[in-house]
């Protein structure tokens, strides 16, 4: 009997839930809790009257620039393939799903779904923490959902999602064909470090997804939510990063399909 891509995706999602990887979210939001405690007892120093959206984007960005987000998301990616190659359980699939390309593609699509679930769960937890700060009457939070620059902030949220929650797991999935889980995570960490440190070089800034995030971040966050961003500029920046992310995703998938097809276990 032939198994469809959708059936493999269902199995992968079931495995994701059984692994309880979703709790890795708490590693991402650990830093947020520290900020939250500071905001509640007013020992925090920083922007006051933060609305929920601004707070959310700042926290997502912080977890990315501190490498926590990319490393945790890379870990999720390694669980899909590298770990299975490492413990041999991949053979359960390769013996029965003879079309390796179908198997890799199903894993890649599953990982996108998992990334979305993981991101939404992170957002939910972060909003929960925001509500917890609001309940203390802290001056650092306004208690409102949005303020200025909604488009720019949503765009930044999307870009952080694409870099941290979408590309990093896909990168870990790809390098996991050749590397053991820990080494795949180290590779993802290394890539994040490089992306964070080559932001302004002439050509590289256009192919570096982090450059686009910083371009908006400087303007939105440095001006503490006061300056109104020009929508055209925001759109151009976000679309630039979306395009770069799609190109990387396609490249990683094509290379992954070829590499996994040739892989001997």
């Amino acid at each position: 009997m032939k198994i469809s891509i959708w059936q493999i995706i269902k199995i992968e999602l079931m495995k994701f839930l059984r692994r309880r990887d979703i709790f890795a979210v708490f590693a991402i939001v650990a830093m947020t809790f520290i900020y939250a405690v500071g905001m509640r007892d007013e020992s925090f120093k920083g922007t006051e009257n933060q609305n929920a959206l601004l707070w959310l984007v700042v926290q997502l960005l912080t977890s990315t620039v501190l490498f926590i987000g990319p490393v945790v998301c890379a870990f999720i990616g390694t669980q899909m393939l590298s770990s299975e190659i490492d413990n041999g359980s991949i053979s359960l699939f390769t013996v029965r799903v003879r079309n390796r390309k179908k198997l890799y593609l199903a894993k890649s699509i599953s990982l996108i779904i998992i990334s979305v679930i993981f991101f939404l769960f992170t957002v939910l937890v972060l909003l929960g923490v925001y509500a917890w700060i609001v309940s203390s009457g802290s001056k650092f939070v306004s208690g409102t959902l949005t303020g200025n620059n909604v488009g720019a902030l949503l765009g930044m949220g999307l870009m952080v999602f694409l870099f941290t929650y979408f590309l990093m797991p896909q990168f870990a999935l790809f390098v996991g064909i050749k590397l053991k889980p820990l080494m795949a995570i180290v590779a993802a960490f290394g890539l994040t470090v490089v992306c964070n440190h080559v932001l302004t070089y002439t050509f590289i800034k256009y192919v570096n997804p982090m450059s686009y995030i910083y371009t908006l971040a400087y303007d939105v966050l440095e001006t503490t939510d006061v300056v109104i961003m020009e929508p055209g500029f925001v759109l151009k920046t976000v679309m630039g990063q979306v395009l770069v992310s799609i190109i990387y995703f396609v490249l990683l998938t094509v290379w992954g399909l070829k590499s996994f097809d040739r892989k001997e276990f």
């Binding site: 009997m1 269902k10 079931m14």
Partner: peptide, 12 residues
């Protein structure tokens, strides 16, 4: 559950 998942991979 290992056997169950294997059956599902086989399409049963």
């Amino acid at each position: 559950d290992n056997l169950d998942i294997l059956l599902k991979i086989t399409g049963i």
